[in-house]
Design a protein around this nucleic acid. Sequence first.
RNA 1: GGGCGGUUAGCUCAGUUGGGAGAGCGCCUGGCUUACACCCAGGAGGUCGUAGGUUCGAACCCUGCACCGCCCACCA
Length: 805
Amino acid sequence: MEPLYTPQGVEERWQRTWEDEGLYRAGAGKRRDETFVDAHPPPNVTGELHTGHALQLAIGDAVVRMKRMQGYDVLFQPGFDHAGISTQNAVEKQLATEGSSRQELGRQAFEARVWEWLRQYGGTIMTQFRRIGASLDYSRERMTLDPEYTRSVMRFFVHLYRKGWIYRANRIINWCPYHQTSLSDLELVHEDVDDALSTIRYPLADGSGYIAVATVRPATIPADVAVAVHPNDARYAHLVGKEAIVPFVERRVPIIADERVEPGFGTGALKITPGHDPKDFGIGRDHGLPEPMAIAPDGRMNELAPELAGLTQKEAEERILGWCKERGLLEQRAHYRHSVALCERCHNRIEPLISLQWWCAMDDLKQPALAALRERRVRYHPESQHRFAIESLENAPDWCISRQIWWGHQLPLWECPEGHITCDEEAPAACADCGSTALTRSTDVLDTWFSSALWPLATLGWPEDTPSLRRYYPGNLQTTGREIIRLWENRMIFSGLELLGEIPFEDVVIHSTVLARDGRRMSKSLGTGIDPRELIDAQGADAMRYGLLKMSSTQDVRFSDSMVDEGRKLANKLWNVSRLLLSGRGEAQPASLPGSVEELWILARLEQTRSEIEATFDRFDFAEAASRLYHLTFDDFCDWYAEAIKPRLAEREVRATALAALETLLKLLHPVLPHVTEEIWSQFHDTRLIVSPWPEERPASQADLRALERVQEAAAIFRRSGVLVELAGDERRIFEAVVRPERAQVNGNAASEIERLQKEVERGERMLGNEKFVANAKPEVVEAEREKLARNRRELEILARRENL
RNA sequence: GGGCGGUUAGCUCAGUUGGGAGAGCGCCUGGCUUACACCCAGGAGGUCGUAGGUUCGAACCCUGCACCGCCCACCA
């Protein structure tokens, strides 16, 4: 064994071994009947590993490895999301380089092309998951567009359809002109842009003047159907009920009153364009206004105003403003910065327009999920995210589930020439209403998240009543980022409840967002991303896992290389102390004490840390767990215990105890540092650490811990003052072994130590002399203060006496 | 505009029911102590963002303010 631990090679070897020996499989090493299931969030099939994935896996895998050692039947489910738009994008880009397009290929050929593309380039991220050491059951890998999975999706859709919760409606939706598809609100990003706010006069039809409106989109003027003012706006009260003339198209439209108009913005008058603005759409519907559209699905002007047909919006805007200017109707054009909606995939501006789409009604579907959340039958961590989850579900509007792309689950809906819709999992022979056999299937596909919502149960074979489904549903844990609560987590909850009557998991851990080193958000376009693959290559997967767990504590944390360094140092330290203990080197010393203080003590410390680690895992505080493991290894195990027993390592009993202690230490560290611990374990075991039993509770170690505390306190005083107080026998011996007075450097002096102790004594006397403190504070706090005071007095006395001598 | 979180050592961050200000890194001092120099022993360094309040006692609880960040939002 070399003095410097090198993870390269070692890690890959264990990853292969674990998988080849079937130790990643569900149920591997189980010693009890209870299951523990983590359906890991499926990454996009086109994706590459990023820091978020790595953190998610560090957390999920640590939990799962501990549960496996505790004997649970563990299922850690891997797989992919087919990622509708993303994947389609990737393949379309490739087609473009060949001078082709999906339209040219046609739908069937395009789908075949995507599958081929996936065979070649897709799924590489699962190799990267393996390289982290994620103990997923790769034999159960699923993709949301697998034939079996698709059956689940179809069954779910038909189920909702037959309950009457899926309907078609002509509404304003978000339209991406690039992808030529509708998008849900959750698939948008917003960005501030510099724009111009134009104030335009709309002449009154009776010739008595004009009413001015402010708009950032003059190009939509041809589709205006009204001008609206606030009902309480005295400036315009006399105009309500009259008519105005829309410039350029010179159409008469009513002036109406509506509370949704902000009197303080612009001129206080709003042009109503139901076809191209969600707010206007709502106002238009409530006032029974028509809904013309001026913009075509490709983002250019349509024939509503024939002279504009085919122009870009920019060109149309210039034409319209020019027209207004000539007639003195353009009152003002001011710089205006505001936020606009963009497609999160292509970053093109979203075009709100009216379109016939399929919707899923949320009112009934979400109720059981809301109840479950409110009753804490499923818990989000931290608590603040639980509240957010409830509120966003309460406010969830009906879900637009149809998309006009090609890569995805095609809607199981067939339409006959009469316009009747038949919904079924398989192609029906005839229309359910009129018996027509001339059926055409809807060309729309489902929102990607519709299929993701079924992840915990579709991966287990639902709707078939499979043994896996019976055994592993419902599961336990979800680990995910906060941006996905509404898109995914809440939808899995209501879907699971609706289909199987049970919530798919108990706890949802929302992990921190890891920011770039400079505090900005990690982003490819900014070049601020940190590639976890580079970290793994340079520092090892263990070091990265440790580092990420330490960064997982708060909501947002900057990436810190020193956390990863700490992990690497921990692995190296462990490696070296193992070399010491396994070599059994050292010269035998005559005074051998079986069951000596230092041995009792390290076993007590290991036991204490075991229960602490379990507690930190229970409250999902992985940063704390990592920190405790670090100090256990460095401070307690290496710097105290190993130093103390080093001279006697040649003795059989001492060495046997040391190996037992090392064994426990390796087990405690394994969930965080799986590779290095397994490598060391293999030096003295034929079995595999990954499936070895978790250390059992070891009773009654309080006396040992007290011995530790005495020694540590004595050492601290000694270091400050050079005076050794009240140690005898074993304690004295361990103290000398560890502190080694002959070499220890004394920096303080007795006088300053006396001063410090005097202050402590004064503080204690002040508190205990305070009636309100004694009366109000908790008994154990008071008692602790009394003990502390007594100890300080005692030590002060000893030191003072020595000084006088 | 609404919601949430943050502000503690030079840096990155802990601080779990209010009761001795901590860790890692960096820096300084001293050690090649045959497990480890990716080490060991020690040290310096903080009026806990700010102004008030509650309390015997506040980094912690309450209020105002400042700055930073995230999420949500139909002021055109």
